[in-house]
Amino acid sequence: MSASPIQAMTFYRQREAQTIITSLRAAESILILGETGSGKSQVAQYVHNQLQKEGYLSVLVPQDVPKAQILSITSCLGIPDTNIEGGKLTLPQLQNEILITLEETTCFLIFDDAHRLTPLIRFWLERLYNQGQAMALFANSPPAEGIFLRLPRFTLKPLPPKAIKQIILETAQHLNCQLSNAQVSQMLAYCGGSPLLAQRVVKESYLEIEPEGPDHHQQIDITPFLVALLMLAGMIRIIGIGLNRVSLYLIGGLCLILVGVIRYLVYRLPKNNRRRLS
């Protein structure tokens, strides 16, 4: 049993990966968006492996401090990190060296979790992009500016229930736990097309932990619609005035107050903070 069975999972994003590879081969950069757990890292790894298999030079830049990220690229490109006098090159010097080398070398840069890149790296990526360097950035709601705004982009859609079900079964198999169809069907409701959540929910079941609530974004809060619908009861008041029926006028008024109270109470409830777990 491994800590993260993700590598062993069947890959369900062949089509998206192929689009990225085709784009990179055509020297076009691309931005891939997807909520946490949608499988971006898996796709990035798959694209990197495929490009290497095809004989291309590809760098999957790790999530690290800027210097370590730049050094990972220089080491792949065979750029020495010292000058002729043996002194260590500074970060801007290393970035310049990469710019010069990539002018003559074909190499694909793949950045996972690109929304965490520092402005220093993002500005440098813009220079690379202007130079015609092909890169693939995987990000989760990045700022709508700079390199993120300039790149053609697509979003990783939630996986279909069939694929999520398969991931649940594979994870269960990996953990040596038996799941009934009823359990799988109930687990699917917590996943919302996210492979990460599919794995998590099986682990929770394995550890006999009651799932707290779905963390996926595939949900709509219908509270405002319900309140709006209830407020239509206020029309009774208008009808009451029109028909000179005091009872209807009274009921309409009572309904409006009731809806107002419900609305007040509902909106006093804390909002669901997706940035923090509660």
Binding site: A189, G213, P214, Q218, Q219, I220, I222, K271, N272
Partner: peptide, 23 residues
Amino acid sequence: KTGVQGLYPSQVRLVCPGHPKYR
């Protein structure tokens, strides 16, 4: 907690209220 797929075949789930703690 999990809401319903009220707009099936869309996978989007309808919930009320927004915070799962209060469902």
